[in-house]
Design a protein around this nucleic acid. Structure first.
Length: 329
DNA sequence: AAAATCAGCAACCGCAGTGAA
DNA sequence: TTTCACTGCGGTTGCTGATTT
């Protein structure tokens, strides 16, 4: 027996919303709230819409303080950076961009940001190599050659889940990495975090978990720490991506020259992010995008096969991971 | 000028998680 | 403990306007 449909599809209106419908829904919710029940809301409002449809319309379009239009470069950086570290968790990424919806960010990524990375890769790669990649194997072979002649630190920059991703390595300045033990290992099987903890402010005041569930609540996350860090470092990461695609490993300078104070903050935020078990990251979730992007982000030879997965250089093993219980003892 | 193609985005679909009964 | 209604999320679809041929 299948699951009962959420509404009678024959009797609900579908497709684009009219201004009248928008006005009805907006005014009702502003006066009465959602009542915690989207399914019955359309009846109360007098709309022939599915409750899910109403919820979506409210969250993505009618809700106050929704920001539409151009994304700023800083927002680009945050999206790219978070995508690199957590994959397509759009709601979590959206939580770091006040006024932006997950749907907006998802669309923006799919239509522009992804192409920005892939487009550059395709455009620049072809003439340099003189041939087209027939398959990913070609890419992997080339990548192996690249990494074989590249310092470990560069390899670390192109790690990607589901192989262990060195979060701090990805975003922290190299000089931090070289000396610091304040790092942790990211792996889809080992690292978990919740949206609510992601919203933890820099003052360590935890936002009640209900905050993210209430559509009337504007996102109150303090994203300044994360965004300021990303804006100062992610360009280096993106540059590294792009330059790698040109087989010219530059761009690290941006990272190397950046200050370290932010990295301490982001490491703290990141640790807070992962120290939760509400949302687990799983490989299938990121598989679609991973399929496309994997030629861009390849594993270092040291972690390229499953056998060596346990043999990651001690350099990459972080003491705080054990402290946090992220690694199996 | 018309047709074809592309890009952007709103909306839908279905699955998974959660909590109440 | 089980069932089921409901919510939230991520992937996908399809419409529309812009651009190219």
């Amino acid at each position: 027996m299948g699951r009962a449909p959420c509404c009678d599809k024959a009797n609900v209106k579908r497709g684009p919303w009219s201004p009248e419908e928008d006005a009805k829904l907006k005014s009702y919710i502003q006066q009465h709230g959602t009542g915690g029940n989207w399914i019955t809301l359309p009846q109360k409002v007098g709309l022939k819409r599915c409750g899910k449809s109403c919820r979506l319309r409210w969250l993505n379009y009618l809700r106050p303080n929704i920001k539409h239009g151009e994304f700023t470069e800083e927002e680009d950086n945050i999206i790219c950076s978070l995508y690199l570290s957590i994959g397509s968790r759009w709601s979590i990424i959206a939580a770091q961009l006040p006024g932006r919806t997950d749907n907006d960010i998802k669309n923006y990524w799919n239509t522009k940001l992804k192409k920005k990375l892939l487009g550059k890769q395709r455009k620049d790669h072809r003439p340099r190599t003189g041939y087209l990649h027939n398959n990913k194997l070609d890419m992997m072979k080339e990548n192996e050659n690249f990494f074989a002649s590249t310092p470990d630190i560069m390899n670390a920059y192109y790690s990607w889940p589901p192989q262990p991703l060195l979060f701090s390595t990805l975003i922290a300045p190299q000089n931090d990495l070289a000396e610091s033990s304040a790092n942790f290992q990211y792996s889809p099987d080992q690292v978990y975090f919740s949206q609510d903890q992601l919203c933890q402010s820099s003052t360590n005041q935890l936002i009640p978990s209900s905050a993210s569930m209430n559509p009337l609540n504007i996102n109150t996350c303090d994203s300044s720490v994360i965004s300021s860090y990303y804006s100062s470092n992610i360009n280096g990461v993106i540059n590294s991506f792009q330059e790698y695609n040109n087989y010219v490993p530059v761009g690290l300078n941006d990272v190397l020259n950046s200050t370290t104070s932010h990295s301490q903050q982001i490491d703290k935020s990141a640790l807070e992010m992962v120290n939760s078990s509400t949302i687990s990251t799983t490989s299938p979730d990121i598989s679609t995008s991973w399929e496309e992007l994997s030629p861009l982000i390849v594993y270092p030879p040291s972690v390229c096969n499953s056998e060596t997965q346990q043999e990651i250089s001690p350099y990459y093993v972080f003491e705080e991971s054990r402290y946090l219980g992220l690694l199996k003892q």
